[in-house]
């Protein structure tokens, strides 16, 4: 009898582990594809010489779709199309910013360092969570409150336009997004997130924000902003 319970328990755990691995694999696969797609739409936007306001319009469009449309379709295959729509839009919005950096001396170096730096941060933190299997669910409230405070500071700085404050906001965003990578990856491996579409968009947003913030920090510190 005990042996039966033990076998059932083991079988259930194995099933759960397989399910978690499937979510993780699908998340990373979709994330890789959406990042490539964003790169493609950013290139198209650069070739089309889109005006700077494209960034604002694309980010607002992407945010609205992510907040109000994606949750309705996250459990169907249509959700994959919506994720590509959001990430494509965000990539398209990046075009004018990348064009602006590319046009200044040392700009291409800043773009490449930001891109490489973002990749290293994401892969390093993901590997850390996957290797240690630590549970970072305790970070949820702290990260959300920190993010809200940063958003309030960002609203103030739109009108104040203080470069030091921009730098500080970008630095804090990188730390918070790093925390979100730890938190979101830990949620996936501990079975807290079972929807790979939502997991992908969460991780994509952290990568996008880290890239933009690194670009800004390196741009300001490089003296070419």
């Amino acid at each position: 009898m005990d042996q039966n319970y033990s076998t059932i328990g083991r079988s259930s755990r194995t099933k759960q582990a397989i399910e978690i691995n499937k979510v993780l694999r699908n998340t990373y696969l979709l994330l890789a594809m959406t990042l490539l797609f964003s790169g493609l739409t950013a290139s198209i936007s650069m070739m089309m010489n889109m005006p700077p306001m494209t960034y604002l319009i694309s980010v607002i469009g992407g945010m609205v779709i992510a907040m109000f449309v994606l949750p309705r379709f996250a459990h169907s295959t249509a959700g994959i199309g919506i994720v590509f729509l959001i990430t494509g839009l965000l990539g398209f919005g990046l075009g004018p910013i990348l064009s602006m950096y590319a046009s200044v001396p040392n700009g291409s170096n800043i773009i490449m360092l930001s891109l490489g730096g973002t990749g290293v941060i994401f892969m390093g933190l993901s590997a850390y969570v996957l290797a240690t299997r630590k549970d970072f669910s305790f970070l949820g409230g702290f990260l959300m409150v920190g993010f809200l405070l940063v958003l309030v500071a960002a609203v103030a700085n739109i009108f104040l336009a203080i470069p030091a404050m921009s730098l500080m906001i970008s630095a804090v965003v990188i730390m918070l997004m790093s925390g979100f990578i730890l938190h979101d990856t830990s949620r996936i491996i501990h079975g807290g997130e079972t929807n790979y579409i939502l997991a992908t968009i969460g991780l994509y947003m952290t990568i996008f924000n880290i890239f933009i913030s690194l670009l800004q920090i390196l741009g300001i510190m490089g003296g070419d902003d």
């Binding site: 360092l113 630590k134 790093s178 925390g179 730890l182 920090i217």
Partner: peptide, 20 residues
Amino acid sequence: GFVVPILVIVLFVMLLVQLV
């Protein structure tokens, strides 16, 4: 377990700034 990797990230960003 959270603070240590974040400090590593801060050092890494400082290294990137040096490389610009």
